[in-house]
Write a protein that binds this DNA or RNA. Structure first.
Lengths: 232, 232
DNA sequence: CGATAAACCGACTCAACTGCCGGTTTTTTA
DNA sequence: TAAAAAACCGGCAGTTGAGTCGGTTTATCG
């Protein structure tokens, strides 16, 4: 099935480096497990206390291991951060694709695809991994060392999205600029909504904004169809 | 002139506490001047190195004064942060209002007001003070001490905007929900654009998104007019 | 089983930051 | 002009965090 292979290709292009060797002696497996625990704990720290709260002591403590053990897997803090970045980028793509294609498979006949995509994106943006993404993106603005790791990864996410989507939806090709625009727009609005949540709250005011953004995308899509593109 | 008094009222509601005593002995003036220099230097630190980079040593150094002198004006770091928050909130409102009303005064007959407002907002969001606002807003998400200072100020900004605008544009009253929606929407999109700038770049891709957001607001405004509201 | 390597531990050094305080210079006031 | 007050200085804890290192336990292989 086409959607499945698309998912596979996009995820493979962003998969963390470690997902490789299948021989898997027990010690290698134990090591990989520990790395996963450490990365997950690091994401928790990031979400709870922000980038400055991502300290070696906090991460090691959350995993009930010593700082020495952690040093064995991640010699420096920045190497741990690098693993977190890989995981977060991968998870963002995976969550959105899974959610979106599941919704497409289950959709009623009259539901527009673009609406499903907006809703899937909004959900993907509310995960703890995306909260970590935001913390990293913000910190990277003023931390050159982090930017050297994060920004290439963020651009890679963007590049994968762009290159794969143009191949997956050839019928949008004449309207390609609008699909990119829709993606940029949705990303910007949803990120901005998360940032303004302390003021906007999480109730009707936010929900109204979310619906307005989705209907704007709906309209953009209809305009594309009207100007000659065949429906998706 | 009505616009002038509106500005005055909105700015007065957000003005920093220190703008008061007119007697002004030389020493008081000197002290106020030093406080301004320190706050301005703190904003520079915030923009350049983020909230963790806002250290007492960096701020004092940027002003060529000792940490001891700084301690005289701001006994703790958080008191300096409080002054920065006041300044940033005030500046955001001031920049937008001045820019907007200047544009309105100089507009050609066929230019829609909503377009001017979007452009003024986009410009106000590109100042160093708004960059500082973003750093504070983000850091406040995971720093309870900062949140206790910043979030009330941010909500006050929001409340002033809401309460004054409803009075300044009574002809929008039937369409009031849409005006609030437009403001929330524009804030969210522009903030999201700033955050995605490292990926989107600052060229045509960003400009296209900005124009699309502005035209979306234009359309929202026209719908309001069509449904019975008189033009502004 | 013995040797080698990987996983893990706890203590140490070094640097950076905040808050504090005694002392000095400049301005105000009586 | 002398005393009081405000502005300013520089150094001293106390804390926290990153990175390093010798030593210990556990798995792997000959």
């Amino acid at each position: 099935m086409k959607a499945q292979s698309l998912q596979d290709r996009m995820l493979a292009a962003l998969a963390p480096a470690m997902h490789a060797g299948p021989p898997e002696k027990w010690q290698q497996r134990k090591s990989a497990l520990m790395r996963e625990r450490l990365v997950s704990a690091a994401i928790d720290c990031l979400v709870r206390d922000g980038y400055p709260g991502l300290t070696t002591a906090a991460v090691a403590g959350a995993c009930d291991v010593s700082r020495g053990a952690m040093h064995h897997h991640f010699p420096t803090r920045m190497e741990l951060v690098g693993a977190v970045v890989e995981q977060v980028v991968y998870h963002r793509m995976r969550t959105f694709l899974q959610d979106y294609f599941a919704a497409v498979a289950a959709r009623r006949q009259d539901e527009p695809m673009i609406e499903l995509a907006c809703e899937a994106h909004w959900r993907s943006v509310q995960t703890r991994e995306y909260a970590a993404w935001i913390e990293l993106a913000l910190a990277a603005r003023t931390d050159a060392e982090l930017a050297a790791i994060f920004e290439p990864a963020a651009r890679r996410y963007d590049a994968v999205w762009t290159s794969e989507m143009i191949e997956a939806f050839p019928q949008w090709r004449e309207d390609w600029d609008n699909l990119k625009l829709a993606h940029d727009f949705t990303s910007a609005v949803h990120t901005g909504m998360l940032l303004h949540a302390p003021v906007f709250g999480t109730g009707e005011r936010l929900e109204r904004l979310r619906r307005f953004a989705a209907s704007t995308m709906q309209r953009l899509s209809e305009e594309g169809e009207a100007s000659g593109r065949t429906g998706v």
